[in-house]
Design a binder for these strands. Structure first.
Lengths: 258, 258
DNA sequence: CGTTCCCTTGAGTAGTTTCAATACTTGTGG
DNA sequence: CCACAAGTATTGAAACTACTCAAGGGAACG
């Protein structure tokens, strides 16, 4: 929970959540302003639409200002979710280095996004190695989350997996100042939860019931009600350190000293 | 299969395999030389040893010159493999931006590694944004592989998962000029294969038997014998495009034009 | 030549999938 | 405002996949 959230959002209305709760403290005000100024224009998308298609050549990247997004891989007729994004995430900054994404990016409910051209990004980053390193960091955060998902899929059963998803989203929302004690809206269907937990819709329904009975956490119609987050955390033995917030992996230095 | 492999390895004996088969073609000779010169010293490690511990503050990174490595997450008494690395991989370049890794890196059999200090890396990258972008690219390759593993775990059964691991390793070895028609040494036990396929050793043994009966591919005592790679690829519907080699995600431009 | 680690097999159990049927929610048009 | 359709969620039963526990066989190393 950042203490000066109001300040950040007032001063940087579009990118004030970027790296918030993680390395935002290592960004100078000049760097924050540079990032804010990167955004060339804003768009609002209604819901469940494509943001970036796999294989398309990208000349710009997207930052998620409000709302959620999902990373999807489709192949041979099956479709799976391999990642979720929350407000403040620079969701396809990877495309700056990769040029083409290996997966699709879709919105999850209505979103507000900002677009950043790679030409501009390139100019800024060439002149600002420290900022470049911070942006690099932010893309590696996604990789760390991927690793945790691998672990989750290798080790947990269906009910624990979905508990893990809820824990992660709670934590990430808290980082960017959108935490909530009692619950929040998360515009996902059970079918989509199943797609990201490697199970079927039918089984996901049963897993959610089990989770509800064990922890009191209710997920229905895109709303998560969670009176006792600690129970959820206990249920899947959740450890948020991989998100590089406060904790044993935290790197709080104002600068990369090497 | 790079055509001028001999040349690369002769001229750049320690880093000649870096990005080979992928974006190495986009590196200038000056950039290749800079990378080669980054290596401050070389080490040989006997086998199954720790390279980097989770949470340790890193002031240098490691490139894998020969041999294999694995990414491991240990938690609450269980242990899982979340990634494999092959020769040419800059295995903990992430630490340059992350400072601390969220997982452990272990060797897999005997290896030869090169060490690169972050101070030096920082100087070079500040002056060379194009090279910085290429190194960034290489870390994102790992993220793409993670996503494919997530997909693999979400969608495939045990036998298909291990087939997928074999396909991926074959393909990555081929990129760096270590491909082989009939098979190769891969110093893994069935227990470790199980750790990366989210199953048990007992079940892995059965899965390997099923795979053997279906495709003729034999894995025993750290050796893969694979007379018919196409059968393996068919068995798990393997699609290597996520590795960003030749294919529909390839970006072959000499430069990042934006 | 025995110890150790690795691999294999069997049998019972737990977790997951599949197919099929039923209910609830939401949005739309009459 | 109600009826309807489409999408979403729940339940049951049977089949299947994977896990666990347990025991035995094989290779490698001193």
């Amino acid at each position: 929970m950042p203490k000066d959230l109001g300040h950040e959002l007032q001063r940087y209305p579009r990118t004030g959540r970027f790296l918030l709760g993680r390395l935002r403290g290592a960004m100078g005000e000049d760097e924050k302003q540079l990032v804010e100024d990167l955004i060339e224009h804003e768009e609002e998308l209604a819901g469940d639409g494509l943001i970036v298609r796999r294989g398309a050549e990208c000349s710009r990247s997207t930052i998620l200002i409000e709302g959620f997004a999902r990373r999807v891989i489709e192949r041979n007729g099956y479709r799976h979710i391999v990642g979720l994004q929350v407000p403040g995430d620079f969701i396809d900054l990877q495309a700056f280095a990769l040029k083409r994404l290996d997966h699709d990016l879709y919105t999850l409910g209505p979103v507000r996004i900002g677009r950043v051209s790679h030409a501009r990004l390139n100019k800024v980053l060439a002149a600002r190695p420290h900022l470049a390193r911070l942006l690099w960091f932010s893309t590696l955060l996604d990789a760390a989350i991927h690793r945790e998902w691998i672990l989750k899929l290798e080790h947990l059963n269906a009910a624990e997996r979905v508990a893990h998803v809820f824990c992660e989203i709670c934590q990430r929302l808290e980082f960017v100042g959108l935490g909530s004690k009692s619950g929040f809206s998360l515009p996902l269907t059970q079918a989509q939860l199943a797609e990201m937990c490697g199970t079927t819709t039918v089984h996901m329904s049963r897993a959610l019931r089990r989770l509800r009975e064990a922890t009191g956490v209710t997920f229905r119609h895109g709303k998560l009600e969670c009176d006792d987050p600690a129970a959820l955390i206990r249920y899947c033995e959740y450890d948020p350190s991989y998100l590089y917030g406060p904790g044993d992996l935290q790197f709080s230095g104002r600068d990369y000293a090497d």
